[in-house]
């Protein structure tokens, strides 16, 4: 199994380290041709505008959609969740997303850095108790389509969701060192 981490900007190294700790071959993806033989792709946290512009400059949009259509699983964390969404609220003018998942995401919905927080989350399908969710200038998932399963909420707001071979989390599992959501992505989402 080979899992790519989009390495244009943001916290991609932490995802690579967690994948390697789970003994998965991890690829730092900087150019579209590296998508070819991947079973899954993680779009990491970072700044969604910066990552989106680099995706545009280096023609990532169509190849990711094509590979996802061919069965590549995709997981977006934070900025990545914005990039995989069908619809983005409070984006910059003309902000483009991949439209891979039937969710509506609102950027910076939890506020600025002064409001950034961590909290225990009950995440569906995870064993071993709550998961520490780290929310940094985080978006939230404001609406989900009928094929989307909600995996976690914080104060009623959707913060993790799955649709088939797509996963979105608005918090940062890569910053906790807790590999359970990575294992879920590998075993349940890619492995499904």
């Amino acid at each position: 199994m080979r899992v790519g981490v989009l390495a244009l900007q943001g916290a991609f190294r932490e995802h690579v380290m967690l994948l390697e700790a789970l003994e998965v071959a991890a690829v730092s993806v900087r150019l579209p041709q590296q998508l070819e033989d991947l079973d899954g792709l993680i779009i990491p946290g970072g700044e969604s505008t910066a990552i989106g512009k680099l995706m545009e400059s280096y023609s990532f949009y169509d190849p990711i959609k094509l590979r996802q259509g061919q069965g590549m699983a995709v997981w977006g964390t934070c900025a990545g969740a914005i990039l995989v969404a069908n619809s983005v609220l409070d984006g910059v003018e003309g902000q483009r997303s991949l439209g891979l998942m039937d969710i509506t995401v609102r950027r910076n919905a939890f506020g600025r850095q002064v409001d950034s927080f961590e909290v225990d989350l009950a995440v569906a399908h995870l064993h071993g108790g709550d998961f520490r969710g780290v929310f940094i200038r985080a978006p939230w998932i404001e609406a989900v389509g009928e094929d989307v399963t909600v995996l976690a909420r914080h104060e009623g707001v959707v913060v993790a969701a799955r649709q088939g071979r797509m996963l979105a989390t608005v918090f940062h599992p890569e910053l906790t060192g807790d590999p359970r959501i990575h294992r879920y992505f590998i075993e349940d989402v890619i492995g499904a």
Binding site: Q9, G10, A11, G45, S116, F117, E118, V119, I136, E155
Partner: peptide, 25 residues
């Protein structure tokens, strides 16, 4: 509904924003 496990301004949240800026200008 408030959650007693919620914390703001932790070191992880502070260093975490810097982690998100990595590879950037």
């Amino acid at each position: 509904m408030s959650d007693s496990s919620k914390e703001i301004g932790t070191l992880r949240v502070k260093t975490g924003l810097a982690e998100m800026l990595k590879g950037g200008v």
